[in-house]
Design a protein around this nucleic acid. Sequence first.
DNA 1: GTAGGGTTAG
Length: 348
Amino acid sequence: MKRMLQEKGLHGFRIIGKPIWGVGCCKRNGYVEEAVKFQRGGIKLAEDLVCYNTLMHHFVTEKKMACGEQILGRMLVRGLSVDAITFGTLIDGYLKEGEVEKSMVVYDGMVKMKKMPNLVIYNSTVNGLSKKGMSGAAEGMVNAMERKDAVTYNTPLNESLKTGDLSSPGTGTGTRNGDGNGDGKRQTDTSPFQEKRSRDVSGFRLNPSPAFPRRPRPLGEPGTRDGTQVAYPCNLAGDVEEAARVLSEMQKQQEEGEELVSLVTYNIMFNHLCKFGCYEKAKEVLKSMVERGVVPDSITYGTLITSFSKNNRGGEEVVELHDYMVLNGVRPHEQIYKSLVSPLLKDP
DNA sequence: GTAGGGTTAG
């Protein structure tokens, strides 16, 4: 039997008894389906917390929320322990489906079982709320959170920059988006959207679930340095200059030991800086990122090379950018390299 | 020694 499992690629699978390499291992090998079939087919596989959590994650990413609920039910019925990861996975699944209410129901259930929500669950919720346009609610959560990390801010920052879509094609190239633009956009594009957004938020505020949001931990840590709160990036409305300012504040706090800026944060900034034509600023930020020891990845590469090429910044600058990133450890996005960079290198 | 959850583009 064990050999059969191994032949199927289910290495380390155990038929009950000892420490296991359960479904988690199958998943790595792309065999979750097999594991599920085995389970249905009466072959007894090890059933423990990690195994069920892995199944839960699988169902949730397939958007099979009913199955996720079933997994939770089965765990409870069998008296298995259930932890924050079990609940967190389910909560995140609902939020990704835009089902804020249902995520709150699960959250309440968790609290009733005396399980403390952790940072990941809060981040997940902030992410879900932001993507639903409920920036006010998201901001409320962030303010109520005691601990935060880079993930906490990434989605709100991204969403906040997206909203002020000043699409002015054609004028894109050298124009800096100074103060003048701010007035123009307020009168035209964004106002209907903002109205809708604040309605959503107030709707949320009128019917909040009793225990939600709540502080992550009642830990009254005496030594917390306060007054160093980062301005929460909730209403940047496409103002990249302001965003860049917020970023440098966050970088400052990073130096004081708080992990608030990550590679993803930089990638978000690059994306928006380029969209708004702030190429020089983008290069500055790239430099400061590298100097802080953050290595660009293929998303960084793709974002920067694509927009620099699109806007005809000149081949030289694109190549220069490519070289700089490669020298600093990026593995170029292959397709983008082939289509945009290597043609520039042809020398007859 | 061991496993499982959250963030960015196209």
